[in-house]
Simulated assay, not measured.
Amino acid sequence: VDLVSEASKMVVAPMPNLYFTRDPFAMIGNGVSINRMYSITRNRETIYGEYIFNYHPDFKGTPQYYSRYNTFHIEGGDILNINEHVLAIGISQRTEPDAIDGIAHNIFNDPTSPVDTILAFNIPNNRAMMHLDTVFTQIDVDKFTIHPGIMGPLSVFEITPEGDGIKVHEINAPLEQILEKYIGMPVTLIPCGGGDRIAAEREQWNDGSNTLCIAPGRVVVYERNDVTNAVLRKNNIDVIEIPSAELSRGRGGPRCMSMPVVRED
């Protein structure tokens, strides 16, 4: 079949991963990170983000905390806004520690940025847990979904401003304890699969821990993760299910396929 007919010619070659809009750029507070992607192929996706934030009348002038031309890779699936002051970033298969170091300097040196703490989560380096949001997402002010695979000892690095630079402090404590310190209230961790190891492994491959929170306590999830979705409802979460069909085979859930530009407090 001749895909390029006279009636319809593609101006540019298609970018097959572009539906994962979370990764090429990520909003951080009132600024944006134009990311350096892990793969050369996907790095093309950041070009349109660069043009939007440099030239679009609604978005030009937005503080930029990272550049697609930087050496070290970082992707939006590893960047989670916990609240106005706290940012979580995954050290993962797709995000390097040096990138986090660089973005921290830029965020803290922006006088308009409300972010004063960055928590760098060191997660396993493998495809099943390629981004922080594949194993950990926030679904309410005090509730998180989590894959049981990162429930054990977890290295978290607290990054805060110090003079013109940054200070890094390693924290070795249970995840609940770490989160409670920065959120200021008790937290609930809801495991993918409800704690059932077999269900957790199966539903993790269908992004059971990757939820799109559209309001506190209201999330969009794949309908096929019935065990995890039932547990979310038991925890008084408003669950909106969508069919995943073939989408989950691309290794991404509802959060991966969204990039909110503006968030209400």
Rank of each mutant, 00 (worst) to 15 (best):
A173M: 10
L3P: 05
Y19V: 13
K181L: 07
Y65C: 04
N125V: 14
Q64V: 13
D23W: 06
P114E: 10
F53I: 03
V32C: 15
A88H: 02
V115G: 00
V227L: 04
V220A: 10
V261I: 15
E84D: 14
G29H: 07
N43K: 12
G149F: 08
N109E: 03
T95A: 07
S67D: 14
P57L: 06
N106V: 02
F25L: 10
G29F: 08
T160H: 00
G77P: 09
D58N: 14
I139S: 07
E180P: 05
V12L: 12
P243E: 08
G194F: 03
P97F: 01
G194R: 09
D164V: 09
N17Q: 13
R94E: 06
L154P: 06
I166G: 06
V231D: 00
V239R: 03
T62E: 01
N83H: 11
M185Y: 10
S8N: 14
P254V: 12
T41M: 15
Y66I: 03
N125W: 03
V11P: 02
Y222Q: 04
A104P: 03
V221G: 08
Y51N: 11
G165A: 10
P16M: 14
T21Q: 08
E96S: 10
I242D: 04
V221C: 15
R36D: 06
F59G: 06
F121T: 02
K181G: 05
R127A: 11
S244G: 13
G163Q: 12
F53T: 04
L119Q: 03
T46D: 00
Y65D: 07
I214M: 05
R255T: 02
G208P: 09
Y66H: 02
V141L: 13
K9N: 12
A13Q: 14
V86F: 02
M259C: 09
G61S: 08
A199S: 14
D78W: 04
E84G: 13
V135D: 00
P63I: 02
L212H: 12
M185Q: 14
G195P: 09
G193A: 06
Y69N: 14
G193M: 07
P24N: 10
G76W: 02
T160Y: 05
A7T: 11
R202Y: 11
I82N: 02
R42P: 02
I40K: 15
N35T: 07
E176H: 07
T134N: 08
Q204L: 12
Q138C: 08
V231H: 00
V262K: 10
I100F: 02
T228D: 07
Q138W: 00
I103S: 04
G208A: 13
R224N: 12
I91E: 11
D98R: 15
D142P: 05
Y38H: 14
L179R: 04
F144W: 09
E84Y: 05
G252I: 02
V219R: 01
Y55L: 13
G102V: 02
V1Y: 11
Y55A: 08
P174V: 04
A215W: 05
D133L: 04
